[in-house]
Each structure stands twice: as structure tokens, then as C-alpha cells.
Design a protein around this nucleic acid. Structure first.
Lengths: 256, 256
DNA sequence: GAAAGATATTTCATAATATGGAATAATAAT
DNA sequence: ATTATTATTCCATATTATGAAATATCTTTC
């Protein structure tokens, strides 16, 4: 074989593997069953090669062949593995496309937060492009009792974790709507659990509203939350509880 | 190379590919980052081989390396591909493990249904092992207006689809709880959308209760629904709306 | 803070393995 | 029925993946 002069040995993938991964990619891209030649042609592979690689994929359930049409499609294994990946991955890289989608659709800032020692920490955010918008301080802390993501994350704690959270904690008042008593917050969290989403009805800042839903890990534990927030004049309470809350939940269900 | 006498040529996978897929599998199995040697040892591969295969996986984002620890983990691509696979796959093969989990945890029959021409069709089911249990007729039709999965699926229809559904339809009464008027059903569906789950409070059969949640496809359309049902003496209304509804929603969020 | 130990990465000669052309089989189209 | 198209299998060949060893990098341990 004639080597190119500047033979960068670096970055030489294993051919058969690289081709196999490309097969998986194109099957995902198409989204519906493909014939052997469709795959071969698209990837510039010989039919015999593609066929052999596909057979290997099928053996390991990474692909399957539709019995009636003979076409090839992704296998169940890709799903179960990808699903596991979700929880090993940095939650940000996974959540980002969905934050973006929420922002695009509702033109309001979408953000991602986790709980740390009872406080909310914003770990990612896609800001609305409007002039007036909500904007959290990335990496910054915020009290949980007055905001939507916080409530959702608190609602996901176990009873003993909650007790530790409440123990000796005083809830500062930011607006006339802020929940400041232990009992009221307990009840609020109960409601959040029931509804599946949390609200911030101008409880942190006058004129700012927010809905949030939890992201659960494979053990059913709420590990992060996604919120959409914006000014009250654009977001009525009914819009918040109806349209936005539903969209957010669906978004999470669809993707996570 | 010495061939075994009975050289079944059939079923000979592409070695490098087969090994690569095993790498993906074991990373998924462990669920957290692995060192090179952990992978090698577990799969009986030489470090150099594993390393080369991993590099190929990384190039294509099927794996990634944690910058701080140097450990390897699944890449974002596995997630996005697996996610796509979900909708190309038969919904049953995907939903089955979760039906089973629901049954195991709550000891009640879990089932999977789709909508066809306004009727519910049960396409899969994991029956409770108790003596008294709910059991749907697999493949069988049931009217949508009186049961939980039906309501959830109806709630996922577009307005025009809904109008076609309602048009000239009469709702038969099965129990004293059955919703029989168009207006009442409309309101009920509205409620289902809000809550994210549907109920059957002895509306099909006296003494049988059920909760259901929708499974959404990548377009956010409800394509199937999962329900848990059982006798009313084991399932109180508050248990149904609280525990069961929440568990089901989480289950779906976690997995789909 | 040095030295040893472990682990990761790169290199390279070798042969085992993946490859693609061709032959055959199975489907689809005419 | 005949042809055309597509899928699958076979097999000789050399390209490509392999593993031993060398090097580099990161951890311990003393």
C-alpha cells in the first residue's frame, strides 16, 4: 500500500468498527428500516461487507432484521445501552438540546438545576432571546423554598433527607407570595409530588414566574430539574400551569 | 490456523466489531466509568486492543473519556441513537420490562395499549400473580371512554382527531360511574391532560380501578399507554391517584 | 521527594482477519 | 415465465487488526 508522505499514524480508527458505527448512525438518522443496499450505498461500502457487519450487529442485538420485509433496523440493545448511558453521562450534555428546544418553542429562558445542601445550583441555561428575560447566575446558589426547580428537587427527597433540610431552617421572605412557614412548604411539596411539577408564582421576585419538572435517574430519584421562567406579563398563571407545565413534562417524558 | 473439524462457517462475527460491542455492553452494565484494564480484564482482551477499539468509539462519540480520571464511559451518541431506536422498535419489546417492573412492585396487572379507530387495543400485559386480578383480553378491543388507557390516549389526540372521534358517537353506560355525555368526557380529557394521567374509577366494571399514563413518541404524540389495574378493595382512590399514578409517571420518565 | 509499582498509550512486525469480487440464492418486477 | 434486482454466501488475497514490548504517565509507598 502506498503511504501518503505525511503519514499521521495518529487517529487511525479500526476500519471495521468505524464502519459498523456508521451503520448504526445512518439507521438512527433514517429512523425507519433500511435495505442492505440503501445502507451500503449511503456509506460507500460493498454489500458483502455491510452484510457481514450487520450480521455481527444482529448477533449482539444491536440491530435486527424485520422478518417480513427483510429490512434492517436498530436493535433493542441500542436502546437499553443508550438509556444506561444517560445516567453515566454528564446531565448537562444530555439536557442541553431539550433546554434549547423549550427555549425555541416558548421563547423563555430554560434552565437546569441540581440540589446541593438544600440550595439550588443552576448548572446550565439557555436564555430567551427577548429583550426582557429571566437569567439565572450559572453556578450560583438560590434558596429552594421560593423557586420552582427548588421545590421540585425538594419534593424528590426522602423523608429523612427532608427532615434534615427543614431542621432549624428559616425561610426568608422575598415577596408577598413567598412561602415562609415549615407547614406551608410541606404542603406545597406534597402538592408538587401530586402534580408532578413545581411553580414559582412570583415568590422569589415580583413579576417573575417559573414552572419546573424533575429529571429522574434509573432509581427513580430526582437528580436534576428543568425550569422555564419569564416575566409575569407574558406568563399568566393559567398558561404556566397549563401549556408550559404540560409541555415541560412531555418534553421530559419524550426524551429522558 | 488449525481449523476445528466441524468448521461451521456460519455465525462467525467480525472479531473487532464483536469485541467493540462487548465493550459497550460492559460499560452499560457497570453503569459508571471504567479504567482501561477493568475493561480489558473483564473481556479478556489485551490492553492495546481495548485501547484501540475505545479510541475508535471515542472518535465517533460512542464513548468518552473522563478528563479528570481518565476513565472510560459511554458517549452521548449511544444515547441519541438508542433514543431513536425506541421509535423504530416495536413498542412492546421496549415497554415489556417496565410492565414487569410495575407488576413486581405493585402486584397488580400492568398493561400496554394503543388506540385504533377510537377503541383501545391491549397489545401487551403482565398479569398480577395474585388470585384475584385484572386481566384484559390481549389483542382485544375496549371502548375508550370508560377506561384509563383509553382516556389518556384520547387526551393525546389533536382537536380535529377528537372531533372525528366524538362525531356521532354514543357512550354506553357500564356502571353508575361511566361517563356518558360528550361534555363530561371532554372535561374529563381536559383533566387528564392537566394531570398527566387517566383514571378508571369503576367506570367499566364495578370494583375495578385503573391508572394509566401515555408514552410519547419523539414528536410528543401519545402513541401508547401503560396502565395498572386491579380490584378496588386493594386499590383505594387515594392510592390510585397518589402512589400508583406517581410511580407510573416516574417509571415512564425514567425509561422512555 | 525519590523510587518502585501500576496503568495507560504508542509502536511495530506478523499473521490472522476483514475485505471485495464473484458465484449463488432469493425476491421483485415485467 | 423471464428478467432484473437485491440479498447472502464463498473464498483467495493482502490489508488490517492484533499483541508483545517499549515508552510514557500517573499512583503509591517509603
Amino acid at each position: 500500500m502506498v503511504e501518503t508522505a505525511i503519514s499521521h499514524t495518529r487517529e487511525r480508527p479500526v476500519q471495521s468498527v468505524e464502519r459498523t458505527l456508521r451503520i448504526l448512525e445512518i439507521m438512527a438518522e433514517w429512523g425507519y428500516p433500511m435495505t442492505l443496499s440503501e445502507i451500503s450505498n449511503n456509506l460507500d461500502l460493498k454489500n458483502s461487507t455491510t452484510h457481514r457487519l450487520l450480521k455481527t450487529l444482529i448477533m449482539k442485538s444491536f440491530a435486527q432484521q424485520d422478518p417480513s420485509s427483510g429490512k434492517y433496523l436498530l436493535g433493542i440493545k441500542t436502546f437499553s445501552i443508550g438509556n444506561t448511558a444517560l445516567y453515566a453521562l454528564d446531565i448537562r450534555s444530555v439536557a442541553r438540546p431539550y433546554l434549547k428546544q423549550l427555549e425555541t418553542r416558548y421563547k423563555e429562558t430554560a434552565n437546569l438545576a441540581i440540589l446541593d445542601q438544600g440550595d439550588v445550583i443552576y448548572i446550565d441555561q439557555v436564555e430567551s432571546e427577548r429583550m426582557v428575560k429571566m437569567s439565572a447566575n450559572l453556578g450560583g446558589r438560590a434558596p429552594s423554598h421560593s423557586n420552582a426547580v427548588g421545590k421540585v428537587l425538594l419534593a424528590g427527597l426522602t423523608e429523612s433527607e427532608l427532615e434534615r433540610y427543614f431542621k432549624g431552617r428559616k425561610f426568608e421572605r422575598y415577596t408577598s407570595n413567598t412561602i415562609t412557614s415549615h407547614e406551608a412548604l410541606r404542603m406545597e411539596l406534597e402538592k408538587v409530588s401530586q402534580l408532578g411539577y413545581g411553580l414559582d408564582a412570583e415568590e422569589t421576585e415580583e413579576g417573575i414566574r417559573c414552572v419546573a419538572s424533575a429529571i429522574y435517574n434509573h432509581l427513580g430519584k430526582a437528580t436534576a430539574a428543568i425550569g422555564i421562567s419569564g416575566p409575569g406579563n407574558r406568563i399568566s398563571m393559567s398558561y404556566l400551569k397549563g401549556e408550559l407545565a404540560t409541555a415541560e413534562k412531555k418534553q421530559l417524558m419524550t426524551f429522558l
